[in-house]
Amino acid sequence: MSANGKPDAPPEGPQGAPREGLRERKRRETLRRITDAGIRLFIEKGHDATTLDDIAAAAGISRRTFFYYFKSKDDILLSLQSGLGDMIVAALRETPPDTRPLDAIRAAIVKVCATIPADDMIVIDRLMRSSPTVQARKQASYVQHEQALFEALRERWPDPQRETRLRLLAMLAVGAMRLASDTLSREGGKRPIIDLLHEAFDALEAEI
């Protein structure tokens, strides 16, 4: 409590950001440990052959703790997919205000995908393809990405007359990202994801 009777502000970290609390840090570390253990076992044993008990044991947690973080082993893979969408939306909001919508989306997707090692992207994609259930849910997640991108675009360009165009841009941008990702996996990482993304967006711009 401060001298003026108001609650003290949380301790600040670098650049004035609130410092992460012990509980939140432990939660994040446990989440990362479960995710890393799950991915490692999926690669070693295959998705279908890996059990929840395997993952819990490898992560050093109980089954009960596992279910606190994930509803199923499929959610480990899908959490990576949803996390990617959140990062792209955040990057989109950081683009300069005078950027064209399509250029802003391109820059955001390229920025985020450039931070992910190609080998990791290929492995995760192949793991998802190995499970029909996960693959179906992955396809459904693209609709969520489109909606999240559209809402971020509408937040930046709120003119109601642009809504249809912005929604189409969000759908096309996610399609370009999917095409680049599929090509990366099919070619085994022969070309960098950044080059594949620019190739897809260049093709998109040439047709609109």
Rank of each mutant, 00 (worst) to 15 (best):
Met1Asn: 06
Ala3Met: 13
Gly5Lys: 01
Gly5Gln: 04
Lys6Tyr: 07
Pro7Glu: 04
Ala9Trp: 04
Glu12Gln: 15
Glu12His: 13
Gln15Met: 15
Gly21Asn: 02
Leu22Gln: 13
Arg28Pro: 05
Leu31Ser: 12
Arg32Phe: 14
Arg33Asp: 13
Ile34Trp: 12
Gly38Ser: 11
Gly38Thr: 11
Ile39His: 12
Ile43Ser: 10
His47Val: 14
Asp48Ser: 09
Thr50Pro: 01
Asp53Ile: 14
Ile55Thr: 01
Gly60Phe: 08
Ile61Gln: 04
Ser62Leu: 12
Asp75Ser: 07
Leu77His: 03
Leu77Arg: 02
Leu78Ala: 00
Ser82Ala: 15
Asp86Met: 15
Met87Glu: 09
Ala90Val: 13
Ala91Tyr: 06
Thr95Gly: 06
Asp98Glu: 12
Thr99Arg: 14
Thr99Ser: 13
Pro101Leu: 00
Leu102Tyr: 09
Ala104Lys: 04
Ala104Glu: 00
Ile109Val: 15
Lys111Glu: 14
Ile116Trp: 01
Ile124Asn: 00
Met128Glu: 12
Pro132Ile: 04
Val134Leu: 10
Gln135Asp: 12
Lys138Gly: 13
Lys138Phe: 15
Ala140Pro: 01
Ala140Glu: 10
Ser141Gln: 11
Ser141Trp: 04
Val143Met: 13
Gln147Trp: 08
Ala152Asp: 00
Ala152Tyr: 00
Leu153Thr: 05
Leu153Arg: 02
Trp157Cys: 05
Asp159Thr: 03
Pro160Ser: 08
Gln161Trp: 08
Gln161His: 11
Glu163Arg: 09
Glu163Asp: 09
Arg165Gly: 10
Arg165Trp: 05
Arg165Asn: 03
Ala170Thr: 07
Ala173Lys: 06
Gly175Lys: 09
Arg178Thr: 01
Ser181Glu: 00
Ser181Val: 00
Ser181Gly: 08
Asp182Ala: 11
Thr183His: 00
Thr183Asp: 00
Leu184Phe: 02
Pro192Asn: 01
Ile193Lys: 04
Leu197Met: 12
His198Val: 08
Ala203Pro: 02
Glu207Val: 14
